[in-house]
Design a binder for these strands. Structure first.
Lengths: 353, 353
DNA sequence: CAATATGGAAAAATCGATTTATCGCTTGTT
DNA sequence: AACAAGCGATAAATCGATTTTTCCATATTG
């Protein structure tokens, strides 16, 4: 009985109107809950909707309404746990407000980032949550500003004078990591960072160094800045160790750095935490099950998403005022990969001189 | 000079028409490359487009065209590397064909899966790539069939009589894992599977068992089927070991199982591969850098995405014929977590009796 | 009882495009 | 010179909704 409907055209509001014996305008009003419709007609419309299995076409609807109930989200990649959960949370929050989330990945390219943004502008999205590849000054942000788009920048950003920003308070977290390491006796620490996002990385770095030096002025902090690709990173690290450098701890400011550090340790036969300690910025599910469990700074993903959506919707609803820069606190989980220096075979034997 | 444009309404095709001194129809034709327009007018239109910064509204355009150039993608979660790359690839392929990809996550809920599908139907997407939470017989697939949507099912599916399917050839891969383990001397193997996706898991299991028994009839294959949540899985595994079971190898059919197995080993002080060997279905970036590197079955993500999009677009373009079921070959990477049994302290001491 | 107010619904305009039908003008044919 | 054909372009219809305007009854008022 329902069979022949399978391939028929979907019913439009006019089909419903015909079936109910009223005008399309009345159907629209009923579905939007306008009160000035006779109860009898309301019933007829609902019956017709039921009978035909009608559902409004949100895109056609939005076309007339001028603003589209779509939020765009742009992240550098889908593959990571972090951005994966960011998208999940944003999706949840957008849907809660009756908006659809359209997600896209810039694949770590600023050019693509701008193209995607242009496409979202074509789609007339109501707002955009952008996790920029690099920082808040990229071409994408420029595009948004130029075209008067409303948007929020998250993650790899500092305070900005054009957009609201929400990010993890990696500065405080880095200070805390410094404290944890120094208190355990580490005085020679290597920090791994991404060279591309100058300002944010610098902030973390400065915070880390300052905090470490304040607690123990004789602390030596080495820094390797690299790209996100595995290979260049790996070779910088290899060169560094080949020079004979023997830090007692490594703090990686990004996930892939943690991974590469770990694999370099492995290649050299060093074990955490006996030979060297390791802390990574950004947590991952595997870190707590490997041996040793890897210490990590956990970003408040959920909170970042909530705040971002919150401020975004306030702007969409027309709230004015200067851009706000939110920093959400991180949690620092000191797991087994961190210990005191000097207990392992390698650091015991050949102390840095 | 561009300042006051910032907050103005976006130019429509009529604005371009006015500016160029032609009709909207002509503008449309020029932008679509229809040849029957005087070169002079073509130029005027392009100039006006340039001047106003006009871009077509793809949604309004699609409204008239009847079919929308949108592909929907539904995956159980965004957080995993696997589905993350699936989405990335699908996005790439859709864009290549001039379509936009709209991705959503079902968050491992069949109810939500169906709701999302309904929403995509509301959006009048041209096609859907669905990675079902459970299998090809869920309510979502039913919905698609009932509403005559064109779609491809991927990942957790077997051949289906209503939809094209593309998935990793986990059956052959499982047989290969069985061979690798048996050849190394393993005769007591524990397999961890997800209980929810009965058919697919059963297929892998049967293939594994059959292959193992054929090579060594005295092989014992234990099975634990669990949900995807960490805790129930962990406790089943714990109970199993508490009973005194001492398999020499574990083959986990899903990523989280691998993770949990690893953490249980750790808790008990067992090391891979000396005390027990471990192979996981599904590879992850961290697996090759931890110690030991974890052996894994690598799914052909890229190939799955390519084939899925390929058949999807053929169907969109109207190609008929019976549904096809594609299986893409996996790669089995035997890393350090796999060895021969009987060399480690625990298995050497208390052999299973 | 005529004039006005009002409630409810239909008709028409609109959103931003595409597509079809139509029209005016030039050119070619006889 | 008259008519058909063809080219280019425009007007109008359309997609599926929402919103504004109009309209017809009935109810209220003077």
């Amino acid at each position: 009985m329902v069979h022949r409907e399978a391939h028929a055209r979907r019913p439009s509001i006019h089909d419903v109107a015909n079936s109910a014996g009223v005008s399309a305008a009345t159907v629209s009003k009923v579905l939007q809950g306008v009160a000035t419709v006779k109860p009898e007609n309301v019933q007829r419309v609902f019956d017709a909707v039921e009978l035909l299995g009608y559902r409004v076409d949100p895109l056609a609807s939005d076309l007339r309404r001028a603003k589209r109930r779509i939020i765009g989200a742009i992240v550098p990649e889908f593959e990571s746990e972090f951005f994966g959960s960011v998208i999940t949370q944003l999706e949840r929050l957008a849907e809660q407000r009756g908006y659809a989330l359209v997600a896209a990945s810039s694949r770590e390219s600023e050019t693509r980032e701008k193209e995607i943004l242009a496409r979202m502008h074509d789609w007339r999205v109501s707002g955009v949550v952008l996790a920029p590849v690099r920082n808040e000054h990229g071409p994408a942000a420029g595009f948004m500003k130029k075209n008067g788009m409303t948007g929020v920048l998250i993650d790899r950003v500092l305070a900005d004078d054009a957009f609201d920003t929400v990010s993890a308070d990696s500065v405080s977290a880095s200070a805390e990591v410094a404290r944890e390491l120094v208190e355990r006796g580490h005085r020679h620490i290597l920090v791994l960072g991404l060279g591309e996002q100058a300002a944010t990385v610098r902030a973390r770095l400065d915070s880390f160094r300052e905090s470490a030096l304040q607690l123990a002025p004789d602390t030596r902090v080495d820094v390797i800045l690299s790209e996100s690709d595995v290979e260049p990173l790996r070779s910088s690290l290899r060169d560094y160790f080949a020079k004979g450098e023997r830090p007692t701890a490594v703090y990686s400011l990004f996930l892939r750095g943690t991974l590469v550090a770990l694999s370099e340790f492995r290649r050299r036969g060093w074990h955490c935490p006996n030979d060297i300690s390791l802390v990574g910025f950004d947590d991952a599910e595997w870190m707590q099950v490997t041996w040793p469990a890897i210490a990590a700074v956990v970003q408040p993903v959920r909170q970042i998403a909530i705040e971002a959506m919150d401020v975004l919707f306030r702007r969409i609803e027309g709230e004015g005022g200067p851009p706000m820069a939110r920093l959400e606190p991180c949690k620092v989980l000191m797991r087994e990969s961190v210990g005191s220096p000097g207990s392992g075979p390698h650091s015991g034997g050949g102390k840095r001189q």
